[in-house]
Amino acid sequence: MPTIYVLDVPENTTIVEVASRHSHVAVQAVGPYVELSSSEPIVIDRRATGCRHAVWYSCLAGLSASRIVQWDKNALRIEAA
C-alpha cells in the first residue's frame, strides 16, 4: 500500500488537500507529519496544489513501501514498491 509522509507546514497544506480529494487516500497525523496512504497509486497534480517548484520538489518527507513513478512539473505519482 503506497504510503507517503509530508511535513505539516503551511506550504504543504494544499499538497495534502489535493492528494486527499481521492477517496482511496487515507490521511492521518503521525507526529509533525501527515501520513497519506492508499490502496491505489497516490497521484497529486502540481498545478492543483498551486505550489511553486521549490516547495513542490521538496514536499516528500518519507516513502514507505512505495516508489516514486513520476515527480515532475506536472504531477507526483507514488505506487506500491
Binding site: 504510503t3 507517503i4 509522509y5 503521525v30 507526529g31 507529519y33 516528500l60 518527507a61 518519507g62 516513502l63 514507505s64 516514486i68
Partner: peptide, 8 residues
Amino acid sequence: LQRKAELI
C-alpha cells in the same frame, strides 16, 4: 526517503 519513513 525510505529511511526517513522508517525513522518517522
